[in-house]
C-alpha cells in the first residue's frame, strides 16, 4: 500500500500505543502540520488518552520526564517538535539519556524516543532550520534515526517505540512528510543499523540520508537520463548506528562517491562518511570523494539566500559530474 512519510509516523505511533500499554506519549504533535496524518493519529490519541500527556512549552523537562519514566519501567515518546528545539532539551538528552546505561554500569536502560521535525524547511530562518543529526552523532549512547522514506519512517519509529532498549532520536523532516512510498503490511523491517540500497548502479555511489534521499534519487535519474551514468543511491537510514560496511561495499563496486547531506559541511554526516572512505576505502576510489552539504553558515530567511545553501538534486548532479569526470589520474595506492 502507498503511504506518506507522515502517515507512516502516525501509523507507527497508533499501532505502538495499542501494542504496548507501557508506552506514554509526551506531547501530541509528531506529524507537524500534515493534516491527513493528524486525522490518522486522532483515533489513537482518543483511545489512549490516559497515556497522552499535555505538554507545556518545557522541552527540557519533557525530555527528562520521558527519560525518567523509561528508566522506571515505562516506554516513552517525547514530541520535541521543530528540530531546533531539541537544544532546549539538550542537557537531558545528551548528558542524561545518553549516559545513563553506561554510567550505571549497565544497570539502567532508558528506552525513550525523542521525535524531532528537523531540517531546512523553507523560511524557517536561523532558529528553526537546524539539522541535528551530526551533533547527536557525537553522543555515544544515543541512536539517531534519519529515515529518508515512508517505509522506513513507519518501521523504524515502530521499532524505536516498541523494541529499542536505548534512547533514540527519531528525526523527521518537514519536507519529507508528504513523500510517499510503498509499504508492504507485515513485511519484515530491514534492521536498524543497516543502510538500504535505494537504487543500484555501477559508476557512482551517492550516499544520502533523510531529505537528501529523494533528492539523490532524482539526481541519479537525471545523471542516467542526461549523461548516461549508472548511479547507486545508498540510504544510510541511521547515523548511529552507522552502516559503514554497506557504504564501503557500494564504493568498492562503483569506485566513486558523492555524499549528499543536509548538515553543515564541516564535522557533518558527510564528513564522517568521507573519513571512513579515506581510512578504509581509499583503494576503491578512482576519484576524490565529493561532499554536497550545507556551507558553514546559519540558515537565512530570504528565499534566494536559503536556496543558495540548500542541497538540491541539481547540486548533487553537479557534484557527481565533478567526481565522474575527474580522477582517472588519481594515484592508486600500491
Amino acid at each position: 500500500m502507498k503511504i506518506s512519510f507522515a502517515q507512516g509516523v502516525a501509523m507507527a505511533i497508533s499501532e505502538s500505543l495499542a501494542a504496548d500499554s507501557r508506552l506514554l506519549l509526551i506531547g501530541n504533535g509528531f506529524v507537524g502540520l500534515n493534516m491527513e496524518a493528524r486525522a490518522l493519529l486522532e483515533p489513537a490519541l482518543r483511545e489512549f488518552a490516559d497515556r497522552i500527556l499535555v505538554a507545556p512549552v518545557s522541552e527540557l523537562a519533557l525530555a527528562g520526564a520521558g527519560i525518567g519514566a523509561a528508566m522506571a519501567g515505562q516506554r516513552a515518546a517525547v514530541d520535541l517538535s521543530t528540530g531546533s528545539f531539541i537544544f532546549q532539551a539538550f542537557a537531558q538528552v545528551v548528558n542524561e539519556a545518553a549516559n545513563v546505561h553506561y554510567m550505571s554500569g549497565g544497570q539502567t536502560t532508558a528506552p525513550v524516543t525523542f521525535c524531532s521535525l528537523a531540517g531546512m524547511r523553507s523560511a524557517g530562518a536561523a532558529q528553526h532550520s537546524h539539522r541535528i543529526q551530526a551533533m547527536l552523532g557525537q553522543v555515544p549512547g544515543l541512536q539517531v534515526l534519519v529515515p529518508g522514506g515512508a517505509d522506513d519512517a513507519y518501521h523504524m519509529l515502530k521499532w524505536a517505540l516498541l523494541q529499542s532498549q536505548n534512547p533514540t532520536v527519531f528525526i523527521s523532516h518537514a519536507l519529507l512528510l508528504g513523500e510517499t512510498g510503498e509499504l508492504t503490511p507485515g513485511a519484515p523491517m530491514l534492521p536498524v543499523g543497516k543502510a538500504r540500497i535505494r537504487r543500484e548502479g555501477r559508476d557512482l555511489s551517492i550516499i544520502a540520508s533523510s531529505i537528501t534521499v529523494p533528492r539523490a534519487l532524482e539526481a541519479a535519474q537525471s545523471l542516467e537520463r542526461d549523461h548516461g551514468f549508472s548511479v547507486e543511491v545508498v540510504d544510510l537510514r541511521s547515523i548511529a548506528p552507522l552502516d559503514r560496511d554497506t557504504v564501503l561495499k557500494s564504493v568498492a563496486k562503483t569506485g566513486r562517491a558523492v555524499i549528499a547531506d543536509e548538515c553543515h559541511r564541516s564535522f557533518g554526516v558527510a564528513a564522517e562518511i568521507a573519513a571512513t572512505l579515506a581510512e578504509e576505502g581509499l583503494a576503491y576510489l578512482k576519484a576524490p570523494v565529493c561532499r554536497v552539504a550545507v556551507p558553514d553558515v546559519p540558515v537565512p530567511f530570504s528565499p534566494p539566500l536559503e536556496a543558495e545553501l540548500t542541497v538540491t538534486a541539481d547540486k548533487i548532479v553537479a557534484g557527481a559530474l565533478k567526481v565522474l569526470n575527474a580522477g582517472s589520474t588519481m594515484r592508486r595506492p600500491v
Binding site: A123, A125, A126, Q127, F301, S302, L305
Partner: peptide, 16 residues
C-alpha cells in the same frame, strides 16, 4: 519579504 532593503538584508525575516 526577505529583501536587501530590510534591516538584516533579508536574513532575519519576520521572526528575528
Amino acid at each position: 519579504l526577505g529583501k536587501a532593503g530590510g534591516y538584516a538584508r533579508g536574513k532575519s525575516g519576520t521572526l528575528h
